[in-house]
Amino acid sequence: MPTDVLDRELVHSGHVGCPGCGATIAMRFVLKALGEKTIMVLPACCWSVIAGPYPQSALKIPVLHAAFETGGATATGVRAALDMKGDTETTVLTWAGDGGTFDIGFQSLSGAVERDENFIYVCYDNEAYMNTGVQRSSSTPYGAWTTTTTGKDWKKLRKKNIVEALVAHRIPYAATASIAFPEDLLRKAQKAKNMKGSRFLHIYASCPTGWRIPSEMSIKIARMAVQTNIFPLYEVEEGLRYTINYRPKEYLVREYFRLQGRFKHLTEKDLDQIQQMVNEDWELLLRKAGEHV
């Protein structure tokens, strides 16, 4: 990675992200890769707050705050207008949370991707609606406590597989990435930048506040998510060509769950079941990548 990319800093200090917030780390990485000539569309999410209250902005690029569900569409308009002005150089980036991507903004995203709008959509995934105080989303994983899945009603449904949903659109580029793997993340963001059409990055971004973990653990946990196959690192080109970027050492998911307050109610039996789900998903991915097990 060229040092000017690494050293480039487009996020100001003084923002109000929680200590140890993974979403802010993700933002720093992505903007390093994309550079100043980027316009950001920012639907409602934690980052709407982190980005700074009027008249402050935590970002050194132009930002258009947007309605929660409009990430894909607003970017469509920004891109169209830039094209009309003859500016094909500026990258249009939508930066949305999992709620704004998997749930309320899914239609808008799907529409934009179907049209192959020329932009990058980043979903930083903290697995719940954090801005509004940790409510479940369709990205919340099986087993998690949230403020709307409490007590014995912890979430008993699987997390939506957003990348596969986008792959079904035959999107030119879709990739997962993690804040714990900066090189991989920066590479993918740069790769996306140098492509045309719709590009999607699904970035795992731990949330100390919502996950009930100590702030200093947010990278460690993000790394474990990859190491345990809970969040595999892979990329898909043209909706067809899968590349798995990281070969986990087959750590047990148990270790990952044990570290987080949001999973503390889970029994050994639950964890066994989750391990099975994770294995199943991983095998499915291997099959898609043409690597039969």
Binding site: S13, G14, P55, S57, A58, V63
Partner: peptide, 22 residues
């Protein structure tokens, strides 16, 4: 010029928030 049109247009950095106090 912030007085130009009074809208939620942010033009200052967040650096005046000394979050070190947290």
């Amino acid at each position: 010029n912030p007085d130009n049109l009074y809208i939620a247009r942010s033009y200052l950095t967040t650096e005046s928030n000394k979050t070190g106090s947290w």
